[in-house]
Simulated assay, not measured.
Amino acid sequence: MAANDEQTRDHGQDPERRTQFADLIRKRRAELNESLATFAEKAVDPVSGVRVKRGVIYRLESGEPVTPPGVEELRAWAAACELPLEALQDAAGQQFHGVDPLRSGSAEATAYVRKLDRVPADQRANLMRLIDSLVPPEE
């Protein structure tokens, strides 16, 4: 038993257990005042038809281990939550991958950054030069 305790301490769970995605789902289901069954019925990806099953929702909300959702599952969660996909992506990134979402002083700046990856590399370089000419880079 002592060996198992030592293994858990050395290689086990992260001391900072992240629950942002589970918290968001639990909170949103409560706000919508929906039963687990009703919420699960709505958890369907409108693009692919992939569903999030009731058991997965229950396990997530109860803190049991779940497989991190892919984009199809995230779209299904977003449909059930009636929230933008990005909100679910941010929470899932925090909980499952330790990635904190972009925080900015304005929603406009966040929207720019979200679109930036779709701009070709050469245009991103031009855009950065333009931004640097307007607001000099910090040293």
Rank of each mutant, 00 (worst) to 15 (best):
R29C: 06
E16T: 02
D14M: 08
R26D: 13
R29W: 03
L24N: 11
D14R: 11
R18H: 08
A37K: 14
S35E: 04
L36G: 14
N33M: 02
R29H: 11
A22Y: 00
S35F: 04
P15H: 06
E34T: 01
E34W: 08
E34H: 10
L36D: 15
H11K: 00
Q13C: 04
D23N: 08
G12E: 00
E34R: 15
K27R: 15
A30S: 13
N33F: 08
S35W: 00
R17A: 09
F21T: 10
E31M: 10
K27Y: 11
T19V: 13
Q20I: 05
G12Y: 02
D23S: 08
L32I: 01
F21I: 10
S35T: 05
N33A: 14
R18G: 04
A40F: 02
R26E: 12
N33I: 03
E31K: 08
A30G: 12
E34S: 15
S35C: 10
N33V: 03
E34M: 15
S35Q: 01
A37V: 13
A22D: 09
P15L: 05
D23C: 00
T19Q: 07
E16W: 04
T19N: 12
A40N: 09
H11G: 00
R29P: 02
N33S: 14
E31I: 00
K27Q: 14
A30E: 12
T19A: 07
E31N: 14
L36N: 13
E31Q: 11
D14A: 07
F39M: 13
D23Q: 09
L36S: 12
P15K: 08
A37F: 11
T19S: 08
L24P: 08
L32E: 11
F39R: 12
H11P: 00
Q20G: 05
L36T: 05
N33G: 07
E31H: 13
P15F: 03
I25K: 02
A37I: 14
R18N: 04
L32Q: 10
N33C: 08
F21K: 03
Q13L: 11
E16L: 04
N33K: 12
R28L: 02
H11R: 00
G12W: 01
Q20L: 12
F39P: 09
E31P: 03
E16S: 01
A40H: 09
A40Y: 04
F39S: 10
A40D: 03
E34Y: 03
T38S: 15
E31A: 04
P15E: 06
A40K: 08
F39W: 13
T19H: 02
R18V: 04
Q20T: 12
L24W: 03
R28P: 00
I25Q: 06
N33E: 06
P15S: 04
